[in-house]
Amino acid sequence: MNELNIKYHNNFLKEVEENIEEGEWIKMCMQCGVCSGSCPLGPYWAHPPQELFMMIRAGKREQVLRSDSMWMCTSCYNCVVRCPRKLPITQIMHGIAAYANNLGMAPKIQPTRDFSILFWKNCTRTGRVNELRLTLGLYFNDGLVAGIKKGWAMRNIGLGLMRAGRLNLFELFKGHECKDQKGIHAMLKKAAEIEQRHKHLTA
């Protein structure tokens, strides 16, 4: 079947339900729009949550997964507390984003996504977040010149943090780490396995 023919057939909805944590809630949306209106970042999205949910039901797989909308969620939970159907909208947004990312369909130049990837890599390496490296990584993400410019702009804050003992330049070399790094990595691996198995089970 071509794209037209699968409209409003549940293929994509089922895919989402199977692959996204809390995805089974999407069908419960009644299109009141309170989430869309409640989002502080709403004006910057192409598709607010309620519309995304409708698009998922309508089978618009490409448009949804390639959208940068769900990446805009800042987890303020306004939508969640107001939703009359008690949908865990924040979790669903992150879920869709993660799924799009896993499929390699997430938009390439997307600051939230970039930061998320950076953060994940940073914290899973040693089990602790290395703030200095995370910051620098973020600053230099757009190239050397851009990184220097950003660093220069933030220099006073950086110095302040150093004086207060909140920033240690030596972190650049080693930084603090988890004691049982092997354990952490084993845990993360196990979690990934469980996630896979869960998807397999619900599929």
């Binding site: 009141c32 729009g33 309170v34 989430c35 869309s36 209106g37 409640s38 709403g42 607010p48 309620q50 306004n78 107001r82 009359p84």
Partner: peptide, 19 residues
């Protein structure tokens, strides 16, 4: 479904936000 109601301080008018 209106997301929130705000009050315009001076006039007492209300501003309805939503989609």
């Amino acid at each position: 479904k209106v997301a929130r109601v705000a009050q315009d301080g001076n006039s007492g008018d209300l501003i309805l936000h939503g989609v």
